[in-house]
Amino acid sequence: MAEAPAVDAHAHVFTRSMPFAADAHARPDYDYPAEAWLADLDRHGIAYGVIAAASLFDDGNAYTLATLARHPRLRATVLVPPETDSATLRDMANLGVVGVRLIWRRRAALPALDAEPWRGMLRRLADTGLHVELLAGSAQLPILLPRLADADVRVVVDHFGVPSRDPFERSAGTGALLRAVDTGRVWVKISAGFRIDHATAAEVAGRLLTQAGPERLLWGSDAPFVNHEAGVTYADTLDLYHRLVPDPATRAAIDRTALALYFNSEGMP
């Protein structure tokens, strides 16, 4: 496919043998191993992929790290406690880990990022060259993003910034996202658009494209579409991406962004 993305920057891989987290919000009864995702990538002409750590599982990143060892075309984020030391982070980075995912969309109370253990964690991430992969919603972004900027750590925001259905809250969240992008240390994924209505996805994508530009944007499928498996296919996610970003040159620029961020431009055509 001549216009296939170069990188799928957001997918989850797992098997039924992996233990669920105690607070898992969904419990898939099927396998979506790395090989199934790679088959989807190959079927659609996508060269590289980035595994997003899933809060559903509590296997200590074992499956993700083993997958990276088998497949050099992949990178990943992981879930680790904030006390994780620099040596552990460096070891993970050497295996192909690019960031640590913070899943705070459903948290009623946000952590104090300017106090321990989070202050030290963010410093260690910055020193190790890893980024924060942030899953948070419109109401949380105006609070979290300035604190992360103060920590001088790179940030990749998932799923359009999880825009709110409330237009005022959504506008405030997207505004905070755009101000953060202006720091030069924040990127945003156009991913999981099937989880929000098309009008909202188009609205936020339009603001991101116009005001942030493709140099700060990434695309991800969110395969295997947990809780939406019956109504979404991999091809559907690509079709939505092409509708939200119809210009091939803009999509090519997003490819370059993903290759540079995750692969240091290795393997760029």
Rank of each mutant, 00 (worst) to 15 (best):
Met1Ala: 13
Glu3Arg: 13
Glu3Gln: 15
Ala4Ile: 00
Pro5Asp: 06
Pro5Phe: 02
Ala6Gln: 02
Ala6Trp: 00
Val7Gln: 03
His10Cys: 09
Ala11Lys: 02
Phe14Thr: 06
Ser17Gln: 13
Met18Tyr: 00
Ala21Ser: 10
Ala22Glu: 14
Ala26Glu: 11
Pro28Tyr: 07
Tyr30Ala: 12
Asp31Ala: 08
Tyr32His: 14
Pro33Ile: 04
Ala36Phe: 02
Leu38His: 05
Ala39Asp: 11
Arg43Trp: 03
Gly45Ala: 01
Gly49Gln: 10
Ala53Phe: 00
Ala54His: 03
Ser55Ile: 08
Asp58Leu: 04
Gly60Phe: 08
Asn61Ser: 13
Leu68Val: 05
Ala69Arg: 15
Ala69Tyr: 03
Pro72Asn: 11
Leu74Asn: 13
Val78Asp: 06
Glu83Phe: 02
Thr84Phe: 08
Ser86Asp: 10
Thr88Gly: 01
Leu89Glu: 11
Ala93Arg: 13
Val98Leu: 01
Arg105Pro: 00
Arg106Tyr: 13
Ala108His: 14
Ala112Glu: 13
Ala112Cys: 01
Pro117Cys: 07
Arg119Pro: 01
Gly120Trp: 04
Gly120Tyr: 08
Leu122Cys: 06
Arg123Leu: 05
Gly129Ser: 03
Gly129Arg: 02
Glu133His: 05
Leu134Thr: 05
Ala136Val: 12
Ala136Pro: 05
Gly137Ala: 14
Gly137Val: 11
Gln140Pro: 01
Leu141Thr: 11
Leu144Cys: 08
Arg147Ala: 15
Leu148His: 10
Val153Ser: 07
Arg154Ile: 06
Val155Asp: 06
Val156Phe: 04
Val157Gly: 10
Asp158Thr: 12
His159Gly: 07
Phe160Ile: 09
Ser164Trp: 09
Pro167Trp: 06
Pro167Thr: 07
Glu169Val: 15
Ser171His: 15
Ser171Phe: 10
Ser171Asn: 14
Ala172Lys: 10
Thr174Ser: 13
Ala176Asp: 08
Trp187Met: 13
Trp187Leu: 15
Val188Trp: 12
Val188Pro: 07
Lys189Gly: 10
Lys189Val: 09
Gly193Phe: 05
Ile196Thr: 13
Ala199Pro: 02
Ala199Cys: 07
Val204Leu: 09
Arg207Ile: 06
Gln211Trp: 05
Glu215Arg: 05
Leu217His: 03
Leu218Ala: 12
Gly220Tyr: 12
Asp222Trp: 08
Ala223Cys: 11
Val226Gln: 04
Asn227Leu: 15
Val232Asp: 05
Val232Thr: 12
Thr233Ile: 06
Tyr234Thr: 05
Leu238Glu: 12
Leu240Asn: 09
Tyr241Asn: 06
Tyr241Lys: 02
Arg243Ile: 01
Leu244Thr: 06
Val245Arg: 14
Pro246Gln: 08
Asp247Thr: 03
Thr250Trp: 06
Arg251Thr: 12
Ile254Cys: 10
Ile254Tyr: 09
Asp255Ala: 01
